[in-house]
């Protein structure tokens, strides 16, 4: 335990407001914690809840989805659709044992570099308090052991994804 826990947070940002807001934070040389890794989508409306789950399954400690303020969506109301999903997703995540602080939907406009910093900082702090996200624990070990016994890539399973036909 030499190093402080540095959470890895996946940020899924809409191109027109939040991604641009994050750009502005950079352009304005606003410094903020380096823990958020950004994935760009055209609109927050593009964000399939699977992406959020995928991030957790891959070991993210938190997921930040950010779009334009209501009314400001470049595609009129993609952000409202994301809001609808968010409401249901929050309950679902709670049922799946994921602390609410680990997932957040925010609105950051193209000129709110400071606000982006604020949200990132808040989230990083909150997630640091919670500690690392517990990937599929104990019972996943059974799967891991099995894989190990077969000598197949442990890595792949540890990553948690790769479900399918």
């Amino acid at each position: 335990m030499t190093k402080e826990f540095e959470p890895r947070i996946v940020g899924i940002l809409c191109n027109w407001c939040s991604y641009a807001g994050a750009d502005l934070a950079g352009i304005s040389r606003i410094k903020y914690p380096p823990n958020v890794r950004i994935v760009r989508v055209m609109c927050s409306g593009r964000v399939d809840p699977s992406f959020v789950l995928k991030a957790f399954a891959e070991g993210a400690d938190g997921v930040l989805v950010s779009g334009c303020h209501p009314v400001d969506c470049h595609y009129i109301e993609g952000n409202y659709k994301m809001w609808a999903r968010k409401v249901m997703l929050e309950t679902m995540l709670q049922q799946l044992g994921i602390e609410p602080e680990r997932f957040r939907l925010t609105w950051v406009s193209a000129n709110e570099g400071e606000l982006f910093k604020q949200y990132v900082t808040e989230m990083v702090d909150a997630v640091k308090k919670l500690g690392p996200f517990q990937k599929p624990v104990n019972w996943m070990t059974e799967l891991l052991e099995h894989e190990r016994s077969l000598g197949t890539a442990v890595q792949e399973i540890a990553a948690g994804g790769g479900v399918g036909e």
Partner: peptide
């Protein structure tokens, strides 16, 4: 990849309106 997430996403958006509180 995830049936539940897809179904949830589809069902949730049927309740979309511009009134966030109402939607909630």
């Amino acid at each position: 990849i995830d049936q539940g997430a897809k179904a949830m996403s589809a069902v949730a958006v049927t309740a979309v309106s511009t009134n966030l509180a109402e939607m909630e």
